[in-house]
Nucleic acid binder design. Structure first.
Lengths: 350, 350
DNA sequence: TTGTAGGCGTTATCAT
DNA sequence: ATGATAACGCCTACAA
């Protein structure tokens, strides 16, 4: 007897049962056990049941390391990001982990530097090293087609998360920024605002572009002419919000409301306005975008638009690991929602 | 010729060179190559150089999957946490990743539920499945000795991050909450405050306990009697800060300053005070703890205490993967620092 | 100092 | 439907 064959069927070395132990006890070959594990269709009921009962009995769990070697693929989903926003990143992680919790998959996190000369090499080397089963690409890096190509090249599943449909449905998760912003600005208009400032996001990315488009659509639908003097650039940072907000309230004929392309800038604008002696929201209504925890902890609580990040991430993971879930594979859009709080009131009569 | 031996030395199957290719081209055995990879001391200069030049030439990269199988250990550091604070978590991840960037290690994230009946089983099954090289335990789960035992049991390196020394030096990274709070409260006293409110953290964990101790030590050193009516419980949430802050400012003889055990509660207290018509900081000075991004984005900007989280996480990773770095192994404390901003002024004359 | 043989625990190939 | 045998790519024990 080369192996000790005790009642647990446990091999001597590691103390944990292997596929060999199962095969021996079930009196079948390793390959048959492997077929059972992988739900191979070509198996007799009887054999399957027998093997499964042995598996349960001795508590066999397949080794992920061994499978990784044989399959050249790890049971890991990786988040690839170039995103400074902590809350966003953590929400994504949470959503993915929710979906993975009932599986054997694990989650890796890999930041990348979009400005690096070695961006693509770094991504390649990550994929080559860790061979993740699939990756979730977060904005803004998700907008880079080359990155998606690299994933494809490595035979690695990928999902691109963004504000618009960036790829085929099965590779995309997106929200509807344009409609959401249109709705938010329409809400401002509904309150009676006609002079509405816009603080934009950084140029070159789709989300700011979409949000601006939604802004313009809302104005147009209400028959309000776009006033370029009410539009300010921003970079999604608090400081840029302060600056843009300041320059808007300093206007001779300032806006009665501001839509900022994210919460940090919205809060920056509030700070700037308050510094100029304005009361918020009485003198200036403000709407943000993101629904960061920040937004409900400031005073006044910020009306904002919320991406369903956790749900999006969960769907992303589902699309990656449940390749046979056709319904999930085709779903690619989850709608944003406006969170009405206290930073918006009708404009003062002049 | 069983293998195609082209100039790249690449094996036919995967397209990527393996240890066999290196061995063949360098005219040594696999084992010798393996020794070179693992920096085995017993090797002649000549052989080492030769092998290394071949490795470089054909671009050989050892397969992590194969090593994982052979070693029963993955080249992965995992963060185990039960921590709701996004910024903290992301900072930890960033610190670890900074340190791992120059290595082949990757980062996994695994949340756990402290309130679950299966807490320990879940941790066991994670360690068993993914066999991380080491884990970083974040507070508050890091305070659970049983979790550390489980890591030990699996032969998995671990580092416990906390407010006090929770374990042997090589397993500990901590800050000096007590001294930092003492310093912050002493600073308030130095400004002339003598009635200082305290909003505590949740009972049962060490960080709130340490922070309270620091608070008491500062008062005692200044000869100020501890006034129990100025102490309020809190749970590290914004809402608990609002509540505690409200009850403090409603006092007949309210404090002129408040120290809150984290920023969220501090900001909650500011909101509550403002709601009661107080001017901040003129009527009430406030100090927080954590230096979340929040704290510099509120008005007034919050004076707070900053844990060097990124540095702590970096050191944690270093301790885990550089087992021969004695200096790092022994270092376990990184000092917090008070960030002076604008939420503190001397009390008004009465 | 270096090499040989065998093992880690799976999956794939190709029979039967 | 099932099995024998050979990968997968590295590491360890032991031998030389």
């Amino acid at each position: 007897m080369g192996q000790r064959s005790n009642v647990q069927g446990t091999s001597v070395k590691t103390g944990k049962p292997t596929i060999n132990d199962v095969a021996r006890l079930a009196e079948v070959s390793k390959k048959t056990v492997s077929r059972v594990i992988n739900n191979s269709p070509a198996l007799s009921e009887k054999t399957r049941d027998k093997v499964q009962s042995v598996i349960k009995e001795i508590g066999f769990v397949p080794s992920l390391q061994a499978r990784a070697l044989a399959l050249s693929r790890n049971f890991i989903i990786a988040v690839l990001h170039d995103n400074p926003n902590a809350q966003f990143l953590v929400n994504v992680q949470q959503g993915i982990l929710d979906e993975l919790a009932s599986t054997e998959y694990g989650l890796m996190v890999q930041p990348v530097d979009r400005t690096s000369d070695h961006l693509y090499d770094n991504i390649r080397s990550f994929l080559e090293r860790h061979k993740p089963y699939g990756v979730v690409l977060l904005p803004p890096i998700s907008e880079d087609d080359k990155v998606a190509e690299i994933c494809e090249e490595f035979g690695c599943g990928y999902i691109r998360m963004g504000s618009v449909k960036l790829d085929k449905a099965e590779h995309t998760i997106s929200s509807n920024d344009r409609e959401a912003v249109r709705e938010a600005v329409t809400y401002l208009i509904g309150k009676g605002h006609t002079r509405i400032g816009l603080i934009e996001g950084p140029a070159g990315f789709t989300s700011p572009r979409e949000r601006r488009a939604g802004f313009e659509e809302a104005l147009e639908a209400a028959g309000i002419a776009l006033d370029p003097t009410l539009i300010r650039p921003g970079s999604y940072t608090f400081e840029s919000g302060v600056e843009a907000g300041q320059s808007l309230v300093d206007l001779e004929n300032p806006p009665t409301a501001i839509f900022a392309c994210n919460d940090e800038m919205a809060i920056g604008a509030i700070i700037a306005a308050r510094r100029s002696g304005l009361l918020i929201p009485e003198d200036l209504s403000v709407v943000g975008f993101d629904d960061t925890p920040l937004s409900s902890h400031v005073w006044p609580a910020l009306t904002t638009v919320r991406w369903p990040i956790v749900e999006m991430a969960r769907l992303a993971a589902r699309k990656l690991i449940l390749s046979d879930d056709q319904e999930a594979a085709m779903r690619w859009q989850l709608p944003s929602k406006m969170m009405e709080r206290t930073s918006v009131v009708p404009p003062k009569q002049r």
